[in-house]
Amino acid sequence: MAFWTWEEWETQSDWLALHGVNLPLAWAGQEKILVDVFQEIGLTDAEIATFLSGPAFKAWNRFGNNQGSWVGDLPRSWIDQQFALQKKILPRIVELGMTPVLPSFTGYMPMNITRVLRDAQIRAAYGSISHIYTLDQYIENSPYSGDLGYLRNVTLNTWKSLKQADPDAIWMMQGWPFYAQSAFWTEDRIEAFLSGVEDNNDMLILDLFSESAPQWRRTRSYPGKPWLWCQVHDYGGNMGLYGQLTNITVNATQAQIESSSMVGYGLTMEGQESNEIIYTALLD
């Protein structure tokens, strides 16, 4: 998707609407906002370049797993093109009756941020079209401390910051770390971490790997936080006619019966063009 044009995004938007999706992730163009803010606080272009990855590695760069590119800097022309594309994608999503999930600031900064740091203005680049923001701090990296008070303060202060920027903000977070780093994320730590968002309705958790490794039971339905039953499918965009039909029909339905805080279903696939049957079955 890093190299999609408007034609592909328009088709994707139609596909989502036709399948009944109502909360599509809309992350294109984020780098333009980051660059503008980093420049405002005094970072040089060279310092910013060490932070941004190449287009194909944005999935990792945006989650704080890597910084910089292996060959050359991320072209400013790509950054500008993605921002212009997002300005076309968002109206189309809204026109089709869907609410886009917008990127929020996750806290990852260029290494040279210690050289300059002063107040910056909050931007409203896309207008008031959504109150749902994707924000993941620990996808495949551990918190600084496992202390329960520390973990609660991380989410408490993040939640307060979101609500200061948008009083109606809803924080969408992946439950992936609770599976991928289960040795760190004990039940006590998960509960402490989630408790920082004091109003349950201000958070929406994606139980990312429900079809194979559901975490909602282990976490007791994320202590009351609304959550979505999701399937990953197609790791790394590997093509193959594969899918767990029983899991995404029987198990997904059973979860809705057992958990009162489950509010919907989601696709969190790493590729999309391999098995339309699986996507259609879940979205139906």
Rank of each mutant, 00 (worst) to 15 (best):
M1P: 10
A2D: 09
A2C: 13
F3V: 04
F3C: 05
W9N: 11
T11F: 10
H19L: 12
V21S: 05
P24F: 08
P24S: 06
A28L: 09
Q30N: 11
Q30A: 13
F38L: 10
D45G: 01
I48P: 07
A49R: 02
A56F: 13
F57L: 14
A59Y: 15
V71M: 07
V71S: 09
S77C: 04
S77Y: 04
I79W: 04
Q81D: 08
Q86M: 11
P91L: 08
P91Y: 10
R92D: 12
I93C: 04
V94R: 11
V101N: 02
V101S: 00
V101T: 03
P103W: 06
T106L: 08
Y108H: 15
M109E: 10
M111E: 13
N112G: 10
R115V: 10
V116R: 14
R118S: 12
A120G: 09
R123H: 13
A124R: 15
A124M: 10
A125R: 15
A125W: 12
G127W: 15
G127L: 14
T134Y: 13
L135C: 11
Y138I: 04
E140Q: 15
E140T: 13
N141S: 15
S142P: 07
Y144F: 15
G146C: 08
D147L: 06
N157M: 07
K160Y: 06
S161W: 06
L162M: 11
L162E: 01
K163A: 06
A165E: 08
M172C: 06
G175R: 03
Y179P: 01
A180M: 03
S182D: 08
F184H: 04
F184P: 03
W185Y: 01
T186A: 01
R189L: 00
F193E: 00
F193G: 00
L194P: 03
D199R: 15
D202Y: 13
M203C: 14
L204E: 07
L204A: 10
L206A: 14
L208G: 07
F209K: 05
F209I: 12
Q215H: 06
Q215S: 09
R217Y: 08
T219K: 02
R220N: 11
G224D: 00
W227D: 00
W229K: 00
C230R: 08
Q231T: 14
H233M: 12
D234G: 05
M239C: 11
G240H: 13
G240I: 05
L241P: 08
Y242T: 10
I248W: 03
T249Q: 03
N251D: 12
N251I: 02
A255N: 00
A255P: 03
Q256R: 02
E258I: 00
M262D: 00
G264A: 06
G264T: 02
Y265A: 02
Y265L: 09
L267A: 08
T268A: 11
G271W: 02
Q272G: 15
S274D: 10
N275K: 01
T280W: 05
A281Y: 01
D284P: 01
